[in-house]
Amino acid sequence: MAAPSEARERRPFGRRLLTDPARLFQHNAWDNVEWSEEQEASARSKVQENSSQLLPQDKQEEYEVNAKKYWDDFYKIHENGFFKDRHWLFTEFPELAPNRSSSQNGDSGSGFSNTEESNNEGLGSCENGHCSLETRTGSQLNLIKSPPRGHTEELAAQNDSELSQNGGDYPGLAASYRILEVGCGAGNTVFPILQTNNDPGLFVYCCDFSTTAVHLVQNNAEYDASRCFAFVHDLCNDQSPFPMPEESLDIVILIFVLSAILPEKMQCIVTRLSRLLKPGGMILLRDYGRYDLAQLRFKKGQCLSDNFYVRGDGTRVYFFTQDELDHLFTTAGLEKIQNLVDRRLQVNRGKQMTMYRVWIQCKYCKPTTLQP
Rank of each mutant, 00 (worst) to 15 (best):
R8Q: 13
L155C: 06
E181F: 04
Q267I: 01
A230M: 07
E6W: 03
L334R: 03
M355E: 08
R149Y: 11
G333P: 05
A186N: 11
E40P: 00
D31S: 15
T330S: 13
S164V: 11
C126L: 15
C365M: 11
P21E: 13
L296A: 07
E117V: 02
C207E: 11
R44E: 15
E9N: 14
D199F: 01
L143S: 11
S45N: 13
D250K: 01
K300F: 00
E121P: 00
D224F: 08
S259Y: 01
L18R: 01
E246V: 06
E40S: 15
K59I: 03
F74L: 14
N120S: 14
K68P: 00
N120W: 11
G111Q: 06
P241H: 05
N32S: 14
M355V: 12
G333N: 01
Q371H: 11
F229T: 00
N348A: 02
V65K: 14
P263C: 10
P94Q: 04
V252Y: 03
I193M: 07
N159D: 15
L345Q: 09
T369E: 14
R290I: 12
V47A: 13
G185L: 13
Y70F: 15
A2H: 00
L155D: 14
L141V: 06
K351M: 13
S125D: 13
D323M: 11
S259C: 14
L370I: 12
F74K: 02
P200H: 10
E222Y: 14
G185V: 02
N66E: 09
K46D: 04
Q57V: 08
D20V: 10
D306S: 12
F25L: 06
D31Y: 00
F90D: 01
L54R: 14
C131E: 08
I283T: 07
Q26E: 15
R227Q: 08
G280A: 05
F298H: 15
E62L: 04
R178W: 01
S305H: 05
N348P: 05
D238V: 03
S259P: 05
T354C: 15
V341F: 02
V270Y: 08
I360V: 14
Q48R: 11
G150K: 03
S248C: 04
D224K: 13
Y309R: 11
Y356N: 14
Q295K: 05
S305G: 06
V190N: 02
F112R: 01
C236I: 04
Q104D: 12
N114W: 12
L141G: 10
S132P: 02
G333I: 00
N198V: 03
F320D: 05
A260F: 02
K299I: 00
L345E: 11
R23D: 12
E246P: 05
P21L: 00
L273K: 05
L276I: 06
S113E: 08
E38Y: 12
D199E: 09
P279A: 03
Q57N: 03
G301F: 01
C236Q: 15
L254S: 03
G81P: 07
T354W: 02
L345S: 09
S146Q: 14
W35F: 09
P12Y: 05
V257Y: 02
G185A: 13
E181V: 13
G280C: 07
N237H: 08
P279M: 08
A157W: 04
T330A: 06
